[in-house]
């Protein structure tokens, strides 16, 4: 292991996160390198300082009690229903499969003609990636590369940056003003992101070309975010927000409606 590699792995050695063989290799270098030893001592020192001398803030008993009392009592069941035609729902597949109603090859046909060609895990991975992108954009306060409330500014901005032309829909009159747009790199391709806002809640609308058939709006949740997605007019649409699911669905319906009517006119 050379010095550069050792410096990179140093924090993981401090945190005992290296595998045994990596740790042995690391130590071999550490023993012969003054700079790495200095670095190591500093990391260990700071780590111990924080562990032993900073405050761990505990919730007060009153707050904990209040929180428990505030949990919704008995009416949460209806809020979380799964969409009936979610094809990657494993229970659905298992039910059919285990009942012997359809054979493996039939199952394959069901899969390939399903609205989404992706396997459950690919679907899952995509959801994951989109949610991370949404969170990342919030974190670094970088929702938009082009900031404008005007679709006529946002749309041309994408020109030349993408190999497709995403529909930029004006929805201010229905309570979802455009705030801007950006380009993201997800699932191995560039994707258009149009940023809308409802009151204070940002909505990221991800758009990219699709070869799949048009589909209904699907709902799901991940890490406390609501997600809706659908395919229409040769594009995939995924919207992610902390808005409640009903409002987000309303947003999705408005976008879809406008895209369809633009297409026809």
């Amino acid at each position: 292991m050379n010095h550069e590699e050792a410096l990179i792995l140093l924090p993981a050695y401090v945190d005992k996160e290296l595998s045994l063989s990596e740790a042995v290799n690391f130590e071999r270098h550490l023993n012969s390198c003054d700079e790495c030893q200095r670095e190591y001592n500093e990391q260990i020192h700071v780590s111990a300082l924080i562990k032993n001398n900073t405050k761990y803030f505990e919730a007060t008993p009153q707050f904990t009690k209040r929180l428990e009392a505030d949990l919704p009592a008995d009416r949460t069941k209806a809020t979380q229903q799964k969409s009936p035609n979610s094809f990657w729902n494993l229970n659905w597949v298992n039910t059919w499969g285990s009942g012997g109603v359809i054979t493996a090859s039939l199952l394959a046909i069901v899969w390939s003609t399903s609205l989404f060609l992706a396997t459950p895990s690919a679907q899952d991975k995509l959801t994951e990636e989109l949610v991370s992108s949404h969170v990342r954009a919030l974190e670094v306060d970088h929702l938009s590369d082009v900031i404008s409330t005007d679709q006529h500014t946002v749309k041309p901005w994408f020109n030349g940056k993408l190999d497709f032309s995403p529909p930029v829909i004006e929805l201010a009159s229905t309570g979802f003003p455009i705030e801007g747009g950006r380009i993201d790199y997800i699932d191995g391709r560039t994707i258009a992101v149009i940023v809308y806002r409802h009151n204070k809640h940002p909505i990221n609308l991800y758009i990219w070309p699709s070869t799949n058939k048009d589909s209904d709006i699907q709902r799901t949740t991940r890490n406390g975010y609501n997600i809706v997605n659908w395919t229409g007019e040769g594009m995939n649409y995924w919207a992610i927000s902390d808005l409640d699911t009903g409002k987000l669905q309303e947003f999705a319906k408005s976008v879809r409606l406008e895209v369809n009517s633009n297409q026809r006119s």
Binding site: I8, L10, P11, E17, E42, Q43, S47, E128, N223
Partner: peptide, 20 residues
């Protein structure tokens, strides 16, 4: 945080350095 483990490692390393 939904970041790779390598990023966790480098943030911890840089964070401790900055704190020092």
């Amino acid at each position: 945080i939904q970041i790779p483990m390598g990023t966790v490692m480098s943030r911890l390393g840089r964070g401790r350095k900055q704190l020092a």
